[in-house]
Amino acid sequence: EEERTFTNEEEARKAKKEAEKRGLRVTVTKDGTTWRVRIG
């Protein structure tokens, strides 16, 4: 499991799409101005 943080919503969405392409489970949460993308 890996967690990545982004300040840019577009980049967070891109990371989510890429992980889904690899067949991984992805959770995206917004924490104030930060987007957290949890993969795995």
Rank of each mutant, 00 (worst) to 15 (best):
K21H: 09
G32T: 03
E1N: 09
E9Y: 15
L24F: 12
K14E: 12
V26T: 04
A19Q: 03
E1D: 11
T33V: 09
N8F: 04
E1F: 15
E2K: 08
I39R: 01
E18V: 05
K17D: 14
E10V: 09
K30H: 13
W35Y: 06
R13E: 13
R38Y: 12
R36F: 13
W35P: 02
A15P: 00
L24A: 04
K17A: 14
V28E: 00
K14I: 11
R22K: 09
R36G: 01
R4T: 07
E20C: 06
E11W: 04
E3Q: 06
T34W: 11
R38W: 12
G23P: 00
R25D: 05
G23C: 07
E2Q: 11
T34N: 11
R38I: 14
R4H: 12
A12L: 04
T29S: 07
T29H: 08
W35R: 02
A19S: 03
E1Y: 15
N8W: 03
W35H: 03
E11Y: 04
A15L: 11
I39N: 01
K30S: 12
E10G: 09
V28A: 01
R25I: 10
I39F: 08
E9K: 07
E20W: 05
E11A: 09
T34F: 14
G32R: 02
R36C: 10
A15Q: 03
E9S: 06
R36Q: 05
E11V: 03
A15G: 01
R13V: 13
F6T: 02
D31W: 07
N8V: 06
E20H: 04
T27D: 04
G32W: 01
V26A: 12
R13Y: 15
A12M: 11
T27Q: 06
N8T: 13
D31V: 13
E18L: 07
R22L: 12
T29V: 12
F6Q: 00
K14Q: 12
K30L: 11
E10L: 12
R25P: 06
K17L: 14
T33W: 08
K17P: 01
T7C: 10
T29K: 06
F6R: 00
K17M: 14
D31L: 08
E11G: 06
E1I: 15
R36Y: 14
E3P: 04
T29W: 14
A19C: 11
V28S: 00
R4V: 10
T29C: 09
N8R: 06
K17S: 12
E18M: 08
L24D: 03
K30D: 05
K21R: 13
E3R: 04
K16P: 00
G40A: 13
E20Y: 04
K21F: 10
E10S: 10
V28N: 00
V37G: 00
K21V: 09
V26I: 03
T5R: 07
I39M: 06
K21T: 10
K16H: 07
T33C: 14
K17V: 13
T34M: 14
L24M: 09
I39E: 02
R38Q: 08
T5P: 02
R22Q: 09
R38V: 14
N8Q: 05
E3G: 05
E11H: 05
E10N: 09
E10K: 11
V37F: 04
T27S: 09
E2P: 06
G32S: 03
E10R: 13
T34S: 09
R22F: 07
E18S: 06
R22S: 06
K21W: 08
E3Y: 11
R36N: 05
T5I: 14
E1V: 14
K30M: 08
R38P: 00
I39A: 03
A12V: 06
T5S: 08
K14D: 09
A19T: 02
R13I: 15
E9W: 15
V26S: 03
E10M: 11
T27H: 07
T27Y: 10
D31R: 05
D31Y: 08
L24N: 03
G23M: 03
R22C: 07
A12N: 00
R38N: 08
T7A: 09
A19V: 03
T7I: 07
T5N: 05
K16V: 15
R4Y: 15
A19H: 04
